[in-house]
Design a protein around this nucleic acid. Structure first.
Lengths: 259, 259
DNA sequence: GTCTATATGTGGATAGAC
DNA sequence: GTCTATCCACATATAGAC
């Protein structure tokens, strides 16, 4: 498709600038003029190379997501090959899914924190073309990991696992995207997550590492939390269904199975 | 300020329609013309009553958030009065913070799921005026609840608690906002979370209840998860710091204290 | 492939009559 | 308070010369 050197450079430069500006100002808040100016290409270049602004956004994502999701599938393949039929540990599954993503944040050649923030911010956008794009882009990975979770925690209702996967995705997306709420939260001592005024050079790689380190235990804790009382319906008395969590011990069927 | 009946009705109608459309199409994806047409008022009415489109969005939120955050502060006041100086249980704090929010979803006179979805989708938006608006609107509540968490879990590093509060906010926002990702996730048996084609009348109140019921245990599990290994640095050997979670027992200092 | 010029649409905001 | 008419900035996209 693209065979000339200049052509390739132009495409990549547009994608790089678009990625950055979409992250900083949002899709609708970023005009093609700003993008082409920033990339030092002509205004018409975007339409020539990508066809439209919508297609440009999709390409910004496809460039990173195809790698990410291939990597995720590969990681799961390896785990399942090792396990040889035995169910995986939840922590392994989460590591393969979220760890792979978070590693992007440490590698600017994969998009770095800029791409991760863009991803987090875009996942909740209501525009139809974005949603259908993500739907098709993620379908296979989600299905595979869903099944892996089902196998890993066979005693937990599947619907419950789907919800929890959803919660985990949310915690991750938001943790990455929400520089701002976090700034409100802090107002205090948070190491060197120092806003983004003079920052962004404040070592995104260190931030990505710390984020991964803190996020993974949280996700695992949420995934393996006791089931909501209404779903237990076995051991607990139906007395006060909304406030019976004084000593939330993890039940047996939520413990990982050791291979 | 507003003293005539028609005036009041006009304002409220604009706010109602704007809330719905901002939720469905996003802020930048919703023109004032669509809003005023939907509300059956004149195009100039928005600028007359609110001053600008930005101010309109802020007013849409202020109408709901002032109630919500007042309620949250009140709930915390009650808990602290009951406890009489003793630290609260984490589950109580989460119930006061997230339970109060989720109850909005069950009451359409408080905005219902429409407002919750709008809130979730807007929290990650990069536009500056929105972020500063939320920052000031949330500052007091966040500060109070942060301190409550610090007191409830005094042995957990404060920075860690701030991160986890952030993760919890994310899981919640995203769970509410992400009708779409969830649709991808499911493709299957999720009770009656049936897209939004013919739905929205599919009993938002039931959805809100189920969401709360499933979300709260997840959040509590995440909040009380074992600390990341690099922060423990006491009992565990520093051998393999990233993969030492075969049996994630909750350490003592993460257990709730009983009053 | 790149660039200029432009077509065509839409946005938010406002002045001024009623 | 409401409404009409309009201003003006800016968006995406494309036609056609180079």
């Amino acid at each position: 498709m693209a065979d000339q050197k200049t052509n390739h450079d132009t495409r990549e430069r547009i994608l790089d600038v678009a990625e950055l500006l979409f992250m900083a100002n949002g899709y609708e808040g970023t005009s093609m003029r700003v993008i082409t100016t920033g990339a030092e290409v002509n205004l018409a270049a975007v339409n020539y190379h990508f066809g439209s602004k919508e297609a440009l956004l999709c390409e910004v994502f496809r460039r990173r997501l195809s790698w990410l999701n291939r990597e995720r599938l590969h990681a799961l393949d390896l785990l399942e090959a090792e396990a040889a039929g035995a169910p995986l540990k939840p922590s392994q599954i989460l590591e393969a899914f979220f760890g792979t993503l978070l590693r992007i944040g440490e590698d600017s050649s994969l998009g770095g924190m800029t791409f991760l923030r863009l991803l987090g911010r875009t996942l909740t956008q209501p525009a139809e073309f974005i949603r259908t794009f993500f739907a098709s882009e993620y379908a296979e990975v989600i299905e595979r990991y869903k099944q892996a979770l089902f196998s890993a925690l066979p005693d937990v209702p599947k619907a419950e696992l789907v919800w929890r996967l959803h919660f985990m995705l949310g915690a991750m997306s938001y943790a990455i995207a929400g520089t701002d709420v976090l700034r409100v939260l802090t107002g205090c001592e948070l190491g060197d997550w120092a806003g983004e005024g003079a920052a962004d050079s404040v070592d995104d790689r260190a931030l990505a590492r710390r984020l991964a380190q803190r996020l993974m235990p949280f996700l695992l804790g949420g995934l393996r939390a006791p089931l909501p009382s209404a779903l237990q319906s076995l051991t607990s008395s139906p007395a006060s269904p909304s406030e019976g969590d004084t000593e939330p011990q993890t039940p047996n069927h939520l413990q990982e199975k050791q291979p």
